[in-house]
């Protein structure tokens, strides 16, 4: 029988953002507290899965119009690029740089290239898991 999922869908709209924000939080926390790119990415995936559960593939595709394979590629490039940046400075691959910078909006803040790398990880995790779920879900 055809059922509506109004309760679920309404709840999801709120919950999705909570989870998403939480995942971003976990991602940024990574360097000093438990968390990081993986968990963050997976949690974002979980949020999107929730969307998929509550709505359907087509709606979610409309809401999040990314080609997730490209997201994977971008993530990989980001991660590789961070690592490979050191080639330019002729220091061993993967040498990270960090330091305190003055940024106009945030004031004094610590920046770490490892963060960019972790962002790459995040993107790859999200991209590939969502690709899998989308393709499986879209299989007939």
């Amino acid at each position: 029988m055809k059922t509506n999922d109004v309760i679920l869908q309404t709840g999801t709209k709120v919950v999705f953002f909570i989870i998403f924000l939480f995942s971003i939080h976990i991602f940024f926390a990574g360097h000093f507290a438990p968390g990081g790119g993986f968990v963050g990415g997976l949690l974002t995936t979980a949020a999107i899965v929730l969307l998929l559960l509550a709505f359907d593939l087509k709606t979610v595709q409309k809401a999040l119009p990314f080609n997730f394979m490209i997201v994977v590629a971008i993530g990989l490039l980001l991660a590789l690029g961070t690592a490979a940046g050191s080639i330019i400075f002729n220091v061993p691959f993967f040498t990270h740089a960090f330091g305190d910078f003055y940024l106009p909006l945030f004031g004094e803040s610590a920046l770490h290239t490892a963060m960019i790398f972790d962002a790459g990880v995040y993107l790859v995790v999200v991209g590939s898991t969502i690709t899998m779920i989308q393709t499986i879900g879209g299989d007939s």
């Binding site: 899965v49 559960l53 087509k58």
Partner: peptide, 12 residues
């Protein structure tokens, strides 16, 4: 349990 598939392609 309810539907046998958890992610629908197009529920409409």
């Amino acid at each position: 349990i309810e539907k046998g598939e958890i992610i629908e392609r197009d529920r409409n």
